[in-house]
């Protein structure tokens, strides 16, 4: 049922005045002594009743139109393709480097953070049906926005990450906070954590267990977009040398993610183009049926009101023109 709202509801206080045509003093009558003579002519009352009703309707129409009624934005449940996505974005100081690993080095290259931000914003714009949330993390995580359909706010939140990042890449609290976002939400579609980071960090074993538990309980898919420096280790093609968790935490993180027991993919991006490719792949992956709400924009009803008033007003004007105001007097 569409809800009706009023942009200027105060005008509605004038609505009682619309009944004025029904009050006795609004009657203009001509004294005519010979009514007794007119018994032969059939007396009708409906034109007068119709006129009053029309006047009343006309006045009401004007008032209601003046208060600018509109049908409120309606949320219509639709079934579409999409997902609930929490963007979990690394905002550590290393994200200020460009893909070549230099800190503000070549002016020709944008920083990892800027490239990620640009591509993510495009991604968000391309997916109107998804719900997004934003969690940013560096040393400490912060949940900027929970799952919401307000795309502009999400874009503002992702855009805010364009500022210089600070601190370390501390993945575990960020993931924990991203998982918290899903807690208590109805499971209506696929849930995705899109982790965008440029490195890994060691996760304590007990924290690992807790995160694994949460991933499974909440049925969240994980996609890790790994922004790799050319000099950094590749998780997909690990070097054949002995690695330690301190020298190449990404490898171990990847191994840990594979043990989560939920769908997991890793995308390595060495440059903005591969980052774009990775995001495009995520897009094709997460297209499951998702009940979502489409917001129909508010519809202004006032033109209809004024139109109706005009339609009523023209006969009223001609009626007024036909009125006989002086007869015997």
């Amino acid at each position: 049922m569409p809800e009706i709202g009023f942009a200027h509801p105060l005008w509605l206080f004038l609505l009682p005045l619309a009944t004025l045509p029904y009050l006795p003093f609004a009657r203009r009558q001509l004294p005519y002594p010979a009514l007794a003579v007119l018994t032969g002519i059939a007396s009708t009352t409906w034109p007068e009743k119709l006129h009053k009703a029309c006047s009343c309707a006309f006045l009401s129409c004007l008032i209601v139109s003046a208060s600018c009624p509109f049908v409120k934005e309606q949320k219509v449940a639709r079934l579409g393709q999409g997902a609930h996505i929490v963007l979990t974005i690394d905002h550590s100081s290393s994200m200020n480097e460009n893909f070549s690993g230099r800190y503000f080095g070549g002016s020709a290259h944008e920083t990892k953070s800027a490239a990620a931000r640009r591509l993510l914003i495009e991604f968000i714009r391309r997916r109107p049906k998804d719900l997004f949330g934003v969690v940013a993390f560096s040393t400490a995580p912060r949940q900027v926005l929970p799952l919401t359909a307000d795309k502009e706010a999400i874009i503002a939140a992702v855009g805010a990450l364009g500022m210089r990042g600070r601190g370390l890449t501390n993945i575990a609290p960020g993931l924990a906070m991203a998982l918290e976002t899903f807690r208590g939400q109805p499971l209506t579609g696929s849930r995705v954590i899109l982790l965008v980071s440029d490195g890994g960090a060691r996760i304590d074993p007990d924290v690992q267990d807790r995160l694994r538990q949460d991933f499974q309980d909440l049925a969240v898919n994980l996609y890790w977009v790994y922004l790799r420096n050319p000099s950094g280790v590749s998780v997909l093609n690990p070097p054949k040398r002995r690695l330690s968790e301190t020298s190449a935490p990404e490898i171990f993180l990847h191994q840990y993610f594979q043990t989560l027991g939920v769908p997991y993919r890793v995308f390595e991006a060495e440059n903005p183009q591969s980052l774009a490719q990775a995001i495009a792949t995520v897009e094709t992956l997460e297209n499951r049926p998702l009940p979502y709400f489409e917001t129909l924009p508010r519809r202004d009803l006032s033109p209809y009101g004024f139109g109706l008033a005009l339609i009523l007003g023209v006969p009223l004007l001609s009626w007024a023109a036909l009125e006989i105001e002086r007869w015997l007097a």
């Binding site: 009558q29 001509l30 005519y32 002594p33 036909l322 006989i324």
Partner: peptide, 29 residues
Amino acid sequence: MSREWQAPARWGWAKLYDPETGHRRFLWL
């Protein structure tokens, strides 16, 4: 008065009342 049966306009309407009895009626002309 001949005006009593000669209306002032060819087309029109009037709400009439009898000043004595207060009866009202609508008259289409």
